[in-house]
């Protein structure tokens, strides 16, 4: 006899690690994440609760939705990092980025200027997109050791370092997405 589904814990803020049942860490094992999704789905997929009460069905649906949400966050390193920082109490600041140095913002400005001129030609555009992607992957790599030391000791300095590194990823990705948008708009 199966037990009635209990609510998957949903504290505030949303903890995707707890929801899907993997260790709270930036470095994750992709296979373990996939396995965790399968395991959670086997348990909570609404198809498995068709014989249950209306309340159980509703709960299973809710749980499965949360599990899918958690998986989507954990699969993407940027969203995963954001979720971790929110759990650490340092969410993405909305509005002006006061911590960013002028040098960094200038660099981003120049990248965007380059994006603008690269967009005029399909060949330079594709080369520029590859470069942005490489920069993003590099920036994500730089996050790993910082997150590791953060995991051991939640120091304010390290937290602001990781915030800065993450913002870099954020700008790079937005620039890359803007590139795709330019193509869609035909500019």
């Amino acid at each position: 006899m199966q037990r009635a589904p209990a609510a998957v814990e949903n504290p505030s803020p949303f903890d995707p690690f707890q929801c899907i049942g993997i260790t709270r860490n930036f470095a994750i094992n992709e296979t373990a994440l996939d396995d965790a999704l399968i395991e959670a789905s086997l348990r909570w997929h609404p198809d498995r609760w068709v014989q249950g009460t209306a309340q159980e069905q509703k709960q299973a649906e809710k749980n499965m939705a949360q599990i899918n949400r958690a998986f989507g966050i954990l699969k993407d390193p940027l969203l995963r990092a954001e979720a971790l920082l929110t759990l650490f109490g340092a969410p993405l600041p909305t509005g002006t980025d006061k911590s960013a140095s002028q040098g960094f913002l200038m660099e981003m400005m120049e990248l965007k200027e380059e994006a603008e001129s690269a967009a005029k030609n399909p060949e330079t555009l594709s080369r520029f997109r590859t470069r942005l992607l490489t920069l993003e992957v590099q920036a994500l790599e730089e996050l790993k050791p910082t997150f590791e030391s953060l995991q051991e000791d939640l120091v304010a300095d390290t937290l602001s370092t990781v915030r800065g590194q993450l913002n870099r990823v954020q700008y790079l990705r937005r620039t890359r997405e803007g590139l795709n948008l330019n193509i869609l708009l035909g500019s």
């Binding site: 993405l92 600041p93 909305t94 509005g95 002006t96 980025d97 960013a100 002028q102 913002l105 200038m106 981003m108 400005m109 965007k112 993450l166 913002n167 954020q170 700008y171 990705r173 937005r174 620039t175 997405e177 803007g178």
Partner: peptide
Amino acid sequence: GTGVVGAPECGDVMK
């Protein structure tokens, strides 16, 4: 005088 600001959330940069 130059001011450069940005919003990481939307990736906006303003000079």
